[in-house]
Amino acid sequence: MMKRVVFDILLFGSVFFVPWWGVFALALYGAWRFSFYYEILIAGFCLDILYGATGMPFIFGFGVLGMVCGAAMLLVFERVKQEVRS
């Protein structure tokens, strides 16, 4: 539990201090390492709010790249973990 909290702090801090590909790499590791790591959805949301803007050519004209990637990563990893670890 403590490891997850520490990793959460690292992940949310990386949104401010690390380029997006670094956040992506951390999120990948978190999704693999922890069970149902929904925090990547929140990190993706923070990324979209901080750096995205209205009028961007994504869903309904607003950037949702971080959140959509986070959700996709979570679903894929949960499925893969289920298959690999069962």
Binding site: P19, L47, Y51, G66
Partner: peptide, 10 residues
């Protein structure tokens, strides 16, 4: 923060 920092052009 600039474009290289995020996946957006902002």
């Amino acid at each position: 923060a600039g474009p290289g920092w995020s996946p957006y052009d902002t």
